[in-house]
Design a protein around this nucleic acid. Structure first.
Lengths: 343, 343
DNA sequence: TTGAAAGCGCTAACAC
DNA sequence: GTGTTAGCGCTTTCAA
C-alpha cells in the first residue's frame, strides 16, 4: 500500500479535494498548484487506490473475459493466447485492467452474472460464440457493454461483434484449389456448433456450388481442432475409395495432423496432396510466407484482439453508442502446398 | 448493479451489520436469521460489491499475472494459455479474480509497481524467469506475496516457486537416446537467458558427460521456440559434415520444425533420425501416447498452473508462510521416434 | 481557485 | 444476537 490522497494532500498543505482535482485534470485548478501536486505525486510514487476510486465513481476501469474450460475447445484453442495478448495490450494502454474468469462450462452464466453484480468490470468480451448463443441474450439483459469475438447466427437482438470473414476466406481457398484443377477437396473443419465452423463450411460449399461440383459428405469432417484429430481425419480421408487430392483444414494445428497422416503412408504434402489451412497468424507458429509448406488464408488474431478491445472500450465510455461491428478480411498466402503432381 | 446490502437489510427489517455477519458466516448470528438472510439474498440475486468489500477489508481478493510482450518469447509461448487456464480455475474455485496485465517489456516493472500501489491485487505470479531475474528482487521489495513459475538461478533472496525438473527431464531424455546407441545428439533448446533453457542444457550435458561423450557445440542450438526456427535449426544441423542421428527439442513446436526439415530432404523422422521433444501436455496439441510420432518428456502445464495458483493463494492467506516451492517431475513417454534404422 | 462535507457499499470495533 | 458508529480512499456536490 502506497501513499493515500489524504497524506499527499496533508504533505502539501492542501485539501484532498484540490489534489484530486489537480491529478484528474479538472480545469479549475491553479496551474502552479497543479504542477506542485503533480511533482509531489510523482515523488511519493502516488497511485490512487483502484478500489476506492471505483467505489466513488461507480466505474471499475476493468474489463472481463470469461473462458469456459470443461469442453476444452475454447482456451484450448491456441488463438486464445494471441487474442488476449492483443486485447490486454489495448487495455493497459487505456489504463484498464483485464479480469480473466476461467470457469467450468456449467458455471459460465453464473460467472457473467457474478462479474456484473459484484461490479468487478465495466464491460465484457465473449469468446467462441456458438450458433444461437444464449450468452448474448444474457449479457443483453445484464445491461453491461459487451463485444463478441465472432458472431452468432440465429441471434436476433443486435449486438457488437468483431469477426473475420470466415465465409469469404474459405470460399477463396476452395476456389484456389478448384482453379488448380482439384475436384475432390476435403474440408477438415472445427466443431460444428461453433459459429465460425458453420461459416467456413458455407464458404466451402459456395465455391463448390459455383463450380458445379456436388459436395461429398464423406469429404467433410468436423472435429476439435487438435493435431491428433487432424491426423485421424486425414487417415480416414485417405482410406476412402476415392480419396481427396486436396485438403482444406480449419486450423494449422489440424493441418499438421493431416500432414502426418499423409507422410505415414508415403505421400508428400504439397506434392501428392495439397494441404491448405486457415489460421490466424500466431506468433509462436506463424504461417504465410515464413512457412511455405502451407497455402493459407490468414489474419492476425493479435490485431483482432487489439481492435476488439478498443471497440469494447468505446462502448464502455459511450453507453449510447449503438451496436458496432467490424469484419476483418484475411490474406491468402500462397505456399508450395498445392499438390501439383496430382493435377 | 444489483441490490446493495443496505437495501437487502431494509427489506428484511434488519441492520446491514447483521446481514453482513449472516452472509459472511459469523457465528454470533441466530440460525433462523441466518437462514432468512440467505434466502432473501438468493432471491434478490445479491452479490456484495467487490470494490466496497475490498475497500473495507483491505483485501482485493484478486491475483495478478504480468505478461511482457515485446520480446515475444513469453505470451507467445503456447504453454502460457494452459498455465493460465489451470491457474484461473484454481482462482475462481477459491473466489479470487485473476487480473492479467499485458505490457511492453520495458514497462514490466512499472506494471508490477502499479498493481501493488493501486491495491489491485493481493498477490502476483511471475512468468518466464530468466537467469538473475530482477523481478524477484523487485517483488521482494514491494512486499506482496508472489510465486514464480520456474526458477531464477543466481538470485540469492529466497522466494517461492513451482518448477518442473527440467534438468532431470533432459538428462533422462538424453540417456534414453544414448541407450539406443546414438552418439551424435543435437539439442535444439529455447532461448538462452531463460532459466529453463539453461537447466535443460545442463541435463543434456550431464548425460553426455556420464557417457563419456564430449559435447559438440555445433549440435547445440538455441532459438525462440517457434516452428520456423526449429525448421531452420534442423536444416542447419542436417547440413553439418557429420549430422546428428538424434535431435532433442525443447518444445513440440520446435520438433515440428525439425520434422519438416527432415522430410524436406527425404528423411523420415523416427526412422532415419530420432526426434525427441520436451513439452508440457497442451490440450490442443497433446503429446505422449496420443501422438506416437515423438518420444517425449512431458508434464501437465495445466496442473502446474493449478498448483502454482494454490500455492500463491496459500501465501496470500498466510503472510507468515515462508518461501514455499514445488518441483514437478516429468513423465518419459516413448513414441516411435527412435531412429532405429540409423543404429 | 480552494475547501468542507457527504457518500459510494461494505466491514469491524464497540455498545446494548 | 443485534444495532450504532466510524471508516476504508476516493469523488463530488455545494459553499466560500
Amino acid at each position: 500500500m502506497g501513499v493515500t490522497l489524504k497524506e499527499l494532500a496533508a504533505s502539501l498543505g492542501l485539501s484532498p479535494t484540490t489534489v484530486s482535482r489537480a491529478l484528474n485534470g479538472y480545469p479549475e485548478v491553479n496551474i502552479k498548484t497543479r504542477q506542485r501536486v503533480a511533482d509531489a505525486a510523482r515523488a511519493a510514487n502516488y497511485h490512487p487506490n483502484t478500489r476506492a476510486k471505483s467505489l466513488a465513481t461507480g466505474q471499475s476501469r476493468a474489463v472481463g473475459h470469461v473462458i469456459p474450460i470443461s469442453t476444452s475447445h475454447e482456451i484450448v484453442n491456441p488463438i486464445f493466447a494471441d487474442f488476449i495478448a492483443g486485447a490486454g495490450e489495448a487495455y493497459s494502454r487505456a489504463g484498464y485492467d483485464m479480469v480473466l474468469s476461467v470457469v467450468p462450462d456449467a458455471e459460465e452464466e453464473a460467472a457473467y452474472r457474478n462479474l456484473v453484480a459484484r461490479g468487478t468490470v465495466d464491460g465484457l468480451m465473449v469468446h467462441g460464440p456458438r450458433l444461437h448463443d444464449d450468452r448474448i441474450g444474457l449479457l443483453h439483459d445484464l445491461g453491461l457493454p459487451f463485444m463478441v469475438h465472432g458472431r452468432s447466427s440465429g441471434v436476433n437482438t443486435p449486438y457488437s461483434w468483431l469477426d473475420i470473414n470466415n465465409r469469404r476466406s474459405f470460399r477463396r481457398a476452395t476456389e484456389f484449389l478448384l482453379d488448380l484443377g482439384h475436384t475432390r477437396i476435403a474440408l477438415v473443419n472445427g466443431l460444428e456448433g461453433m459459429d465460425f465452423a458453420m461459416r467456413r463450411r458455407t464458404g466451402y460449399l459456395d465455391a463448390l456450388e459455383a463450380a458445379g461440383i456436388a459436395p461429398d459428405r464423406a469429404l467433410m469432417r468436423t472435429a476439435e481442432m487438435t493435431e491428433p484429430y487432424g491426423h485421424q481425419a486425414g487417415r480416414e480421408l485417405l482410406r476412402l475409395p476415392d480419396p481427396p487430392t486436396a485438403m482444406l483444414a480449419s486450423s494449422m494445428i489440424v493441418a499438421y495432423g493431416l500432414r502426418r497422416a499423409l507422410t505415414e503412408v508415403g505421400l508428400q504434402p504439397g506434392r501428392d496432396v495439397s494441404v491448405i489451412t486457415h489460421d490466424d497468424d500466431l506468433s509462436y507458429m506463424p504461417n504465410g510466407l515464413d512457412v511455405p509448406q502451407f497455402t493459407a488464408t490468414c489474419s492476425s488474431v493479435r490485431d483482432a484482439g487489439r481492435k476488439a478491445a478498443e471497440m469494447l472500450l468505446a462502448l464502455v465510455n459511450d453507453p449510447d453508442l449503438g451496436p458496432i461491428n467490424h469484419l476483418m478480411e484475411t490474406r491468402l498466402v500462397l505456399g508450395d502446398s498445392t499438390g501439383r503432381n496430382r493435377l
